[in-house]
Simulated assay, not measured.
Amino acid sequence: MSAKPDTNSRSTTVGQPEHESPFPSLMSKVPEITLLFWIIKMMSTTVGETGADFLAVDMGFGLVGTSLVMGTIFFATLLAQIKARSYIPWLYWTTVLLISVFGTLITDIMTDQFGVPLTVSSAVFSVALIITFAIWYRVEHTLSIHSIFTRRRELFYWAAILFTFALGTAAGDLVSEGMGAGYQLSLFLFGGLIAVTALAYYTFGANAILTFWIAYVLTRPLGASLADMLTKPTAEGGLGLGATGTSELFLVTIVVLVGYLTVTRKRSTTPIVGSTD
């Protein structure tokens, strides 16, 4: 959902907390919620699904080997993101992309390596996400992404995102495969739920923070369903495009969009020559 003033948090206006941030440069570390944000987010979830399959299956690294490598890269990138003093588009979205792959691998390992039913993993990640939100709200008194101006809030933010990706993977697989809905029906189902969430926000004035996180969770199974529909063989209900080509296509698109955001952000923050401001 796009940003709207939230009267239930400590913010009086969008992106402007009631109290000044002790770390002003951290105010811009989370991007504005625009259409491009949701497009890149959805594509990142798709690449997370196809990328995990490509590395684990097509490249033959296996789930455990892929998880160790991607986990190391992810945590190193997350550390760089947390240490950054301002919003850097390529770093932020690289972190999201890697957390998407890592979250997918966590669910796949639980399902394929340890035989944990998707119903159980979905329930576990749901509880983990609820607990994260509960502690976050109890400590910080808000779940608004426009109030993330301390390291602690940023850690809560990324913990929540990790659980949304893991939950989205489990829930998406549960609906499309476990319940036999198929990839196309799952795609329309999760897309429809996102549309209902958007309608509740834009038409009926539903809480901005609540609708944002609902949409954020739902884009994960939406992206996973899209990835499976594109990559799975036609005999399994997919289009048979394969993980390699699909991953490359979406990854290139993400790079182009993030590059655009980087260029436009630099232009918007570059002083105009001759300006007296």
Rank of each mutant, 00 (worst) to 15 (best):
A3N: 15
D6M: 02
Q16E: 13
Q16Y: 11
Q16S: 12
E18F: 14
S21M: 06
P22C: 12
S28I: 08
K29S: 10
V30T: 15
P31T: 12
L35W: 11
F37H: 10
F37P: 05
I39F: 14
K41I: 07
K41N: 03
M43Y: 08
S44Q: 03
G48S: 02
E49D: 10
G51M: 13
D53V: 13
F54I: 03
L55G: 01
A56R: 04
D58Q: 12
D58T: 15
M59Y: 05
L63Q: 01
L68Q: 00
V69H: 01
M70E: 09
M70R: 10
I73K: 04
A76V: 05
L79I: 14
A80G: 05
I82G: 03
I82V: 06
K83V: 11
K83P: 06
R85V: 14
S86N: 10
S86K: 09
P89M: 08
T94W: 05
T94K: 01
V96S: 05
L97K: 01
L98E: 02
I99T: 01
S100N: 13
S100T: 06
F102H: 06
G103P: 04
T104L: 10
L105T: 10
F114T: 00
V116H: 12
V116Q: 12
P117Y: 08
L118K: 06
L118A: 14
L118Q: 02
T119C: 11
F125V: 04
A128E: 08
I131Q: 11
T132F: 01
I135F: 08
Y137Q: 08
V139N: 07
V139H: 09
I145H: 05
I148D: 07
T150G: 00
R153D: 13
L155H: 05
A159R: 08
A159F: 06
A160Y: 04
F163V: 06
T164R: 05
F165M: 09
L167A: 09
G168Q: 07
A171R: 03
D173S: 03
E177I: 15
Q184W: 09
G192W: 01
G192Y: 02
G192T: 01
L193S: 02
I194D: 00
T197A: 14
Y202M: 02
T203M: 15
T203R: 15
I209F: 13
L210Q: 05
W213F: 06
I214K: 12
V217E: 00
L218T: 00
P221W: 02
P221M: 04
S225T: 09
S225Q: 03
T234E: 15
T234W: 03
E236T: 09
E236S: 02
E236H: 05
L239E: 00
L241W: 12
L241Y: 11
G242W: 10
T244H: 14
G245F: 04
E248C: 12
L249T: 14
F250H: 14
V252P: 08
T253S: 13
T253L: 13
V256G: 04
L257R: 13
V258S: 09
T262P: 07
R265S: 12
R267M: 13
S268H: 08
T269G: 04
P271N: 07
P271R: 10
P271Q: 15
P271L: 14
I272R: 15
G274T: 00
D277Q: 11
